[in-house]
Simulated assay, not measured.
Amino acid sequence: MTGKDVAGLEEARDSIPAGTKINVTFLGNEDLDMRVAAAKAVKDMGFIPVPHISARRLSSEAQLEEFLARLQEVGATEHVFAVGGDPAEPEGPYPDSLSVIRSGILQKYGVKEVSIAGYPEGHPDIAEDVLWRHLEDKSAALAEQGLKAVILTQFSFDTDPVTAWITEVRKRGIQSEIRIGTPGPAGIKRLIGFARRFGIGANAMIVKKYGFSLTNLMGTAGPDRFVGDLAALLAENSAAGSVKLHFYTFGGLLATSRWAGEYVAARS
């Protein structure tokens, strides 16, 4: 959810299981009060807030400490997501999430678990070897500091690169829980727009496999086929380790939570 989605969370709260992790964004058009209020709302409604820390958006060490201190006041620092962020040039002393992790500041404010980014289909602006090195370095830095790590991936439409990437993560000795980014049900046009923005494959063959057509952009699509296929592939891979889902709620919190509840009910 974004800092503006508190009303949407209130609307969806009864369809989301208690204790669900809900990430809270760190966008350029949000301010400190909005981010903290959203994290507090998540906590107050019985869920686990996972505030984002966007390294390149931080103008100073003092800003990072102020953010964490405010989050700690509302009981929202145990779980965070450290990510580089969008700005082409860092706005302060942190060029990437690794520099935030290595600062030692997170533990000072009660952080126990740090989510870090994974990119099964690569990143439009970062070379693949660099992505792997960063993932290994961040995993090692968190282990050294006694912090639990979770790898949270960009969303995908195709199970093939996802399962290949999971296999490679495990081959590199990284055994942290992986949460695979999964688009919640949303308009097809909107899904494709997000895919293009983040450099994710959305060609005709892949989206047909996912379950919708590029020739009909007016409908909506859910991740039923993607989730089912991924579950089947992981069941065959004993080395996959702990793999869960992370939903990007492009169609809204309520639509996504209802979809998840219906999906589980239909298979139980």
Score class of each variant (00 low, 15 high):
residue 1 M to H: 07
residue 2 T to M: 07
residue 10 E to A: 06
residue 10 E to P: 00
residue 10 E to F: 03
residue 12 A to H: 00
residue 13 R to M: 10
residue 15 S to E: 14
residue 15 S to A: 15
residue 19 G to P: 06
residue 24 V to R: 01
residue 28 G to H: 03
residue 29 N to M: 09
residue 30 E to Y: 04
residue 34 M to G: 07
residue 43 K to M: 14
residue 44 D to H: 09
residue 48 I to H: 01
residue 49 P to D: 04
residue 51 P to G: 04
residue 52 H to I: 02
residue 53 I to D: 08
residue 60 S to R: 05
residue 62 A to G: 13
residue 69 A to Y: 06
residue 74 V to E: 11
residue 76 A to F: 01
residue 77 T to E: 12
residue 82 A to G: 12
residue 87 P to L: 05
residue 90 P to C: 03
residue 90 P to T: 02
residue 91 E to K: 15
residue 92 G to S: 08
residue 98 L to V: 08
residue 98 L to I: 09
residue 99 S to N: 09
residue 100 V to A: 05
residue 101 I to M: 13
residue 102 R to K: 15
residue 103 S to H: 13
residue 105 I to L: 14
residue 107 Q to V: 09
residue 110 G to Q: 07
residue 110 G to V: 05
residue 119 Y to D: 06
residue 122 G to Q: 04
residue 123 H to P: 09
residue 124 P to H: 05
residue 125 D to T: 09
residue 137 D to H: 09
residue 138 K to M: 13
residue 139 S to K: 07
residue 140 A to F: 04
residue 148 K to T: 12
residue 148 K to R: 15
residue 150 V to D: 12
residue 153 T to M: 01
residue 155 F to G: 06
residue 157 F to E: 00
residue 158 D to C: 03
residue 159 T to M: 05
residue 168 E to I: 04
residue 177 E to D: 13
residue 177 E to A: 14
residue 178 I to L: 11
residue 180 I to V: 15
residue 182 T to E: 10
residue 183 P to A: 07
residue 183 P to G: 10
residue 184 G to S: 10
residue 186 A to V: 06
residue 186 A to Y: 01
residue 187 G to V: 03
residue 187 G to F: 04
residue 188 I to L: 07
residue 194 F to G: 04
residue 195 A to N: 06
residue 196 R to T: 08
residue 199 G to F: 00
residue 210 Y to M: 06
residue 211 G to A: 05
residue 212 F to H: 03
residue 216 N to Q: 13
residue 220 T to Y: 14
residue 221 A to T: 04
residue 222 G to K: 00
residue 222 G to P: 02
residue 224 D to W: 07
residue 227 V to P: 03
residue 238 S to W: 05
residue 243 V to A: 12
residue 246 H to Y: 05
residue 249 T to I: 01
residue 255 A to V: 10
residue 257 S to N: 10
residue 258 R to V: 00
residue 259 W to Y: 15
residue 259 W to I: 11
residue 261 G to Q: 06
residue 267 R to N: 13
residue 268 S to D: 14
